[in-house]
Amino acid sequence: MPIQILIGVCVILENVLTIVTLVKCRRVKNFLRLLLMNQSVTDAMIGIFFTYHSAVVYHHLYNTTECLIRYSVVAFTSGASLCTITMLSMERIVAVKLPYSHYKLNETPVMISTGVTTLVVPICVVSSAYSFADKNIPECNFLLLATSTSLFVFAFTSLPCIIFVIVSNVYMLNVARQQIKRIVPNFVGREKYLKEIKMNMKATLTSASVVVPFLILNTPQYLFFLTMAIRPDLRYSHSAITTLNILFSLLVLNSALNPIIYTWRVDGIRATFMRYICRKKPSFEP
């Protein structure tokens, strides 16, 4: 239990530092900064939940209302994270297909509507799913609390988003590669355009570096929900509970990796982190 709490605290601190860095960072476009801040907040909430859940399980505390709230929070954070990743993929599509309209994403109304969407959609999904929950359970176990209908709601609202994210990112990488292949052999006199294409490719790869770990570490959870909904008899097995714990550990791992990915891939975040958090002047000037 102390190790689990330590891991949870580390995840919280990582993402709090990332939020502080993003607030101070001005080299990252506002829309992207909003999405990364949303993701960092949900990752910090995952760390808080993991720490709290570890302490509660260790002390064998149980209350039906507390159990429902606890799992509602983790379902909300997971859903909000998926919404944010979906929005990030949509932002890249706009950047690739509508480059002259991309700047409109940084306008205040668009950012407000995006922020509200990433909050309201998961709240609606969680509310709908847990309206079918079984509240007469002997212990706080997600697989007992969530009925087959609840699991179907989680699976069928999440898997289409995951499919969209996969398809859109594969498509964007292919478009970016085709743009470079088309322009590089005839780049004479088009240095500025070539630079923009390469910057777009870099942004697409940065988006993919965030999306790919998310998909690898989060998709199994929703496939598991779908399996448990189709085969409810499996929900009471010890192996199902063990699998659920492993899948939740993958969520925590993803929350721990995200700040590292941001710092590695985004120059502005790395420079701001070095300047304000580490109190060290970066090797290049913004």
Rank of each mutant, 00 (worst) to 15 (best):
C10V: 15
L13C: 08
E14K: 08
N15D: 07
K24E: 02
K29N: 01
M37P: 05
I46T: 14
F50A: 14
Y58F: 13
L61F: 07
S78P: 00
A80G: 14
C83F: 09
L88Q: 13
S89E: 10
I93P: 03
V94T: 15
A95Y: 03
A95E: 01
V96M: 15
K97G: 00
K104E: 11
P109A: 04
G115Y: 04
V116C: 12
T118S: 14
P122W: 08
I123V: 06
C124R: 01
V125E: 02
S131R: 10
N136E: 13
N141A: 07
A146W: 06
T149F: 05
Y171H: 14
Y171K: 11
N174D: 04
N174M: 10
R177D: 11
R177N: 13
F187Q: 12
G189L: 04
I197A: 05
N200C: 08
N200P: 01
A203T: 10
V211K: 01
L217R: 07
T242N: 08
T243L: 12
T243K: 12
L244D: 14
F248I: 12
S249Q: 08
L253A: 15
N254I: 03
A256G: 15
I261M: 09
R265K: 14
V266H: 06
Y276N: 13
Y276D: 10
F284W: 12
